[in-house]
Design a protein around this nucleic acid. Structure first.
Lengths: 236, 236
DNA sequence: TGATTCTTATTTGTAATACAATATTACTTA
DNA sequence: TAAGTAATATTGTATTACAAATAAGAATCA
């Protein structure tokens, strides 16, 4: 068991190793993992640590275990693909270009509707937060890192402002995913246009105009598509 | 620790108890749970079982733990609200009428786009499955249970057929949620219309016509809204 | 006094061992 | 052959002991 990472606790490092192995395809769906005792030896850890790691993977839908039968990998259909850990394991094992496209398809489906819902149901504090996030984008100036963080915060706030908790995991997942994307390709292009678009979306939500918000979100995403393509061609 | 349920394994029953307690609001965000030893006594279980239950809840984003500091409840924003277990705990603790509306808002956002994606990317086996699911709806006749199951399978297949795994957890969650809904209010009304609408959606996807599929999904959902309202007024 | 460092105590984290429960497999028997 | 039964491997639970981390308080120093 190499210490490799900053995930302090042992069982979490073990979960990382096993999770990545599964995501990588080392154990296809239906496969049974090696018996606990054997895995303990291979990894050089106690059964306690291993089992706690397995419980985490089971909770995320990756595994399923029964006495005598063993611990087997469930069909991918049951995995919680929006889980931040899953996403992380995926990023570190599989090819990124394919999943960015899929991620964006989900975003395109949900974000305009989320914007409309936010315009309708957002609390005053949500609207204030959104305005603050937007202001941070403006204030970022030429600081790329600051701009990206503000951008991520802005879109995350949109999902939160729906006050519909079923939208939240999607927003969180997109935040993680987009951060990864931005770290690949440096930003800075079309920033003026981006600010104008975000301004439209922000005011539509703050002023409680659902249809305007949906439309603003759509145009914003429409333009972001080209950025995605740029990432896919340039970066990696 | 009462045996109460059919979840065979102890640590899973414990997870149910704690999960429901958290969902119910017994431990608001930021609260620290009682120390492990104390919880063990209260529940009458070993520390092993308790900790394995906690690892599961941590994996779902509900909890966070550190030495000395204790195990505390995270902000709801980080919970995996699409997780089947979370949904189940929620159904058994909180009021259903509120979340059905939210669930439907998510469905309205994602399903038309999922239908369009399915029409584009579905594998032959996906299309065959969808046709089979539709046929099962037709064959159900007056058998309410069979019809509901076929209906659930149909919509689940739509999400799978997108071949975009980020859509899958949503489809799974909706399946669980809709099953709960149907168990509240008996069905049977407008079945002829429902079959016609599903036929349109099915053929659009099978024949690979994205725009038609999206439109068919939208009309289908538009009519389903009234069913929801019916459920909310009649049932309970 | 105020800030800093050290000590202490509490809580989670990991290990090791033993046994129980369960389901597969193989065997036995009618 | 079929049904039932026993052997066996694997996960599930309990117990104990100790390690590690950190928050809080005590002691120290400027």
């Amino acid at each position: 068991m190499t210490k490799e990472a900053l995930s302090l606790k042992l069982h979490m490092r073990v979960a990382d190793v096993l999770g990545m192995a599964i995501l990588r395809g080392d154990y296809p769906a239906g496969t049974v993992l090696p018996p606990e005792m054997q895995l303990c030896e291979e990894l050089g850890i106690s059964r306690t640590a291993l089992r706690e790691a397995l419980r985490g993977l089971i909770a995320k839908g990756l595994l399923e275990s029964r006495p005598k039968r063993g611990t087997l990998v469930r069909d991918e259909v049951y995995w919680n693909h929006l889980d931040p850990d899953l996403l992380r394991w995926r990023i570190e094992t599989t090819d990124t270009s394919t999943y960015l496209e899929k991620m964006f398809a989900l975003r395109r489906a949900t974000e305009p509707e989320a914007a409309a819902l936010a315009a309708r149901h957002a609390l005053p504090e949500n609207r204030a937060q959104l305005a603050a996030d937007f202001q941070a984008m403006v204030d970022a100036g030429d600081d790329d890192a600051a701009w990206v963080e503000a951008d991520l915060a802005f879109h995350r706030t949109v999902y939160l402002a729906t006050r519909n908790e079923f939208f939240w995991p999607i927003g969180e997942m997109l935040a993680v995913s987009l951060r990864q994307m931005f770290s690949i390709a440096a930003q800075g292009s079309h920033r003026a246009r981006a600010i104008a678009e975000h301004a439209d979306l922000c005011s539509a939500i703050v002023e409680g105009k659902p249809d305007l918000a949906r439309a603003a979100s759509l145009t914003l995403l429409g333009n972001a598509v080209s950025d995605i393509d740029r990432v896919r061609t340039e970066g990696r």
